[in-house]
Nucleic acid binder design. Structure first.
Length: 449
RNA sequence: GUGGGUAUAGCGUAGUUGGUUAACGCGUCAGUUUGUGGCACUGAAGACCGUCGGUUCGAAUCCGACUAUCCACCCCA
């Protein structure tokens, strides 16, 4: 262990025995998005640095101190994407997708890179699932996006999740609010913590999010954005709440929910769990009506969200959610001697072609160790091949759960013989399969005897 | 960037006020007489005790620095 090169700080290995957890969430997330009309988009891992500066915002921490920027030959510098929205919108513009009609929906599963201090649930390379919807201004779109997230969280089985929503207005009403907010905190500047002094200059809304007790107390009396919303923004926000109620989605209006990226307007929301300490935001998103035009496109309303996949999986593990187990081994061919091993290879190829999951000995173990190995990998059936089997042309499939052995001929009929054995085993042990078969039977569907 | 905790085989741990061959469980591999797994028993492999330096006759144990990790701040997913 001593002299190995270690993985870079803030990165993670997903080892073979654990990857099924990722497959589970990736599958659920993608299928649900597709059900809601989204299609996957794939974009580059790095973009021109300017893209993130213009979209995410040059005053944000993400851009100011967390970007992995590399210079290339020539003048341009590139940056490893710190999030997925900027690249996605860039790609939508560049490929003329806006001309294909509204609304456009895209989802992605990708890795993002931010150079920040590492904690559990906060890595330097992390993975996001995200959705972007372009060309829909109505609050129904906001509700639909939130419904999508809700549906995903339900499907993976998460509990104790709270939905916070808020509106941070449009540039017009936010300007008014900023002024009022600044004036309010300016009067109480001495009582605020140091970081809040900086926030007062850069982004006063973030003071509302401060965890220091004194600041919290002061912030409790601060003006609330919702009182400053212009009529359009107000009715948009009310429309969203109405829609959420119609869809039966519980929410909390949290005026302190503020997003840290500059491009957000109007609706912002977060799905929060209490099971991850300070990294409880499993999903965050909102509307960004100004982003497309600021990237040089036509004024187009848009919205989206991003979900932190390692946070999602961590929470699922903590809550004991179920993951889809990978399919194990159907048959293991035990072989003794090189002739038997050749037979095992031959049979393995035949059964694999048929779709079965098959393994045989490739490390030259003895009979007993091979049996142990077959047991360890959860093989459903084992067939022992040795000299006597090769001579008689007959061998036995052993059901590893019941110990039952069935003799079959080692000729072309073997696939069919095994098919029957396998089918019988499924009927005996797999309740889902049985229900599945029964459902056909009820429909007067003829079963093969 | 700031503050605090931790660092012993693949994993989880023990290691008494510094004293010789660093212990245990799980896991891995093999065996328990001749061709059948799970249980049990036996054995083996596997650790320069995170790294470097210091104190000492002697350091896993004390001190310092570094690195990694965890927690909190910050920020975000």
């Amino acid at each position: 262990m001593a002299n190995y090169i270690q993985r870079p700080k803030g990165t993670q290995d997903v080892v073979p025995s654990q990857s099924y957890k990722w497959h589970t969430v990736e599958r659920i997330v993608a299928e649900t998005a597709e059900q809601f009309g989204f299609r996957e988009i794939r974009i580059p891992t790095f973009e021109e640095t300017g893209l993130f500066v213009r979209s995410v915002g040059d005053t944000t921490d993400v851009v100011q101190k967390e970007m992995y920027t590399v210079s290339s030959t020539g003048d341009s510098t590139f940056t490893l994407r710190p999030e997925g929205t900027a690249g996605t919108i860039r790609a939508i513009l560049e490929n003329g997708i806006l001309n294909e009609g509204f609304p456009q929906r895209a989802y992605y599963i990708l890795s993002c890179f931010r150079h920040e201090n590492v904690q559990k649930g906060r890595l330097r390379e992390f993975h996001q699932f995200g959705c972007e919807m372009v060309g829909a201004a109505d609050p129904a779109a906001d509700a639909d996006i939130i419904a999508l997230v809700k549906s995903i969280l339900d499907r993976v089985g998460l509990k104790n999740i709270r939905l916070d929503i808020n509106s941070i207005g449009c540039p017009k009403c936010r300007g008014e609010y900023h002024k009022a907010l600044k004036a309010f905190f300016e009067d109480r500047k001495d009582e605020l913590c140091e970081t809040c002094h900086e926030r007062l200059e850069r982004n006063p809304m973030r003071i509302l999010d401060c965890k220091v007790e004194d600041c919290k107390k002061i912030a409790a009396d601060a003006p609330v954005i919702l009182d400053y919303l212009c009529d359009d923004c107000k009715s948009h926000f009310e429309g969203l709440q109405e829609n959420l109620r119609v869809m039966g989605i519980d929410f909390v209006i949290n005026p302190h929910t503020v997003r840290g990226l500059d491009y957000y307007t109007r609706t912002v929301f977060e799905f929060v769990t209490t099971d991850l300490g300070a990294q409880g935001v499993v999903c965050g998103g909102g509307r960004y009506d100004g982003l497309i035009s600021s990237l040089g496109g036509p004024q187009t309303p848009a919205l989206g969200f991003a979900m932190g996949l390692e946070r999602l999986i961590l929470t699922m593990e903590k809550q004991g959610c179920e993951f889809m187990e990978p399919k194990g081994c159907d048959i293991y061919f035990v072989s003794m001697g090189s002739n038997a091993q050749k037979k095992a290879m031959e049979l393995t190829a035949k059964f694999r072609e048929e779709g079965y999951y098959v393994q045989y000995d490739i490390v030259g173990r003895g009979l007993k160790p091979q049996m142990k190995y077959a047991d360890k990998i959860g093989a459903k059936f084992v067939m022992v091949l040795g000299d006597s089997e090769l001579e008689t042309g007959k061998a036995k499939f052993k059901n590893m759960q019941t110990g039952e052995q069935t003799e079959v001929s080692l000729d072309d009929s073997i696939l069919e013989s095994f098919g029957e054995i396998y089918y019988t085993m499924l009927l005996d042990t797999d309740e889902d399969f049985r229900d599945f078969v029964d459902s056909f039977a009820e429909d007067d569907f003829e079963l093969g005897n």
